[in-house]
């Protein structure tokens, strides 16, 4: 019963958790920049405000795809938390990303297009790493099901530390953190794909960002197996690492990001795969 109940509760609370995480992150970030920062519940205030705005959109298809991005991302997260097949999860996540990219392309907005272009490049940057990661996990556990990973007593971290590092290197791309936030890049393309969403429709995209937090941190949690203490440690470490990285780096160009991700992160994941297959 517990195996189902906890994930279901997690799934239902995922936007809430993600929102809290985001709010907390904004505080931590502000403190790292020697500011006071917004209140913890700030993301939810934003949420409430966006709900009350006048409804405006560029056209219906664009707005609808934005909403479906949120829905499909939530679904991908649900499959992940319920212990589904990791490859399927990765592709469901790609599905949700692709809906957002399509939304970005569907307008005649320049920055939206540029953002979609860059988001597509980002997919190229992180997706191979994730797939290699999934296969490495398969080679250790004999199954692609994340359920088996959640329950295995031996944490993956000890067996595939390199893959964990690779994951840490690509996480900023997914979470749109400096130095790899090219897809969002406020100073360059003013938010990229999100640009044309407003009000209620932006809410979907904004909340989807929270879901992405939960998604990514769940991926990190995978490395701890059933060891919850270690898992919590990993989460805290990743959280601090991401914020420290965000606060100590400038944004690189999309080419540099691609080079780095495919050159370093992908190689690390590959070496890990080799080691796994040879031992």
């Amino acid at each position: 019963m517990n195996d189902v109940l906890i994930p279901v509760i997690l799934i239902l609370l995922a936007p809430l958790l993600g929102g809290l995480l985001y709010g907390f992150e904004r505080i931590v970030k502000a403190r790292m920049q020697r500011r006071i920062g917004p209140p913890l519940l700030q993301p939810f205030y934003d949420f409430l405000k966006l709900a009350g705005k006048r409804r405006m959109m560029v056209h219906s298809a664009h707005a609808f795809l934005g909403i479906m991005h949120f829905v499909s991302l939530w679904f991908a997260l649900a499959v992940l938390l319920l212990g589904g097949d990791l490859i399927l999860v990765i592709f469901l996540h790609l599905l949700s990303t692709s809906l957002l990219i399509l939304a970005g392309y569907s307008t005649r907005s320049i920055f939206s297009h540029l953002g979609a272009n860059r988001a597509a490049i980002s997919v190229l940057a992180y997706e191979p790493v994730l797939i290699i990661l999934a296969v490495s996990i398969f080679m250790l556990n004999g199954t692609f099901d994340t359920a088996a990973v959640f329950t295995s007593s031996e944490p993956l971290l000890y067996k595939m530390p390199l893959a964990f590092i690779a994951l840490l290197l690509v996480l900023p791309i997914k979470l749109k953190k400096s130095p790899f936030d090219v897809a969002e890049a406020h100073q360059e393309i003013t938010g990229g794909v999100e640009l044309e969403f407003s009000g209620l429709f932006y809410e979907a995209v904004y909340t989807a960002k929270w879901l992405d937090y939960v998604f990514c941190y769940t991926l990190v949690f995978l490395f701890a197996g059933s060891n919850i203490l270690l898992g919590a440690g990993l989460l805290v470490f990743t959280f601090l690492y991401l914020n420290a990285l965000d606060n100590s780096t400038a944004r690189v160009s999309y080419k540099q990001m691609l080079r780095f991700s495919l050159g370093v992160a992908f190689s690390l994941a590959f070496i890990n795969l080799l080691i796994n297959s040879l031992t």
């Binding site: 392309y105 569907s106 597509a120 490049i121 997919v123 997706e127």
Partner: peptide
């Protein structure tokens, strides 16, 4: 894994122009 990601980038690139429209 690499090829698959490259193909997805390719498909996005092609779809990009197709779906773009200015109004409805």
């Amino acid at each position: 894994a690499g090829g698959g990601a490259v193909l997805s980038l390719l498909y996005f690139k092609v779809m990009g122009g197709l779906v773009s429209r200015s109004g409805e």
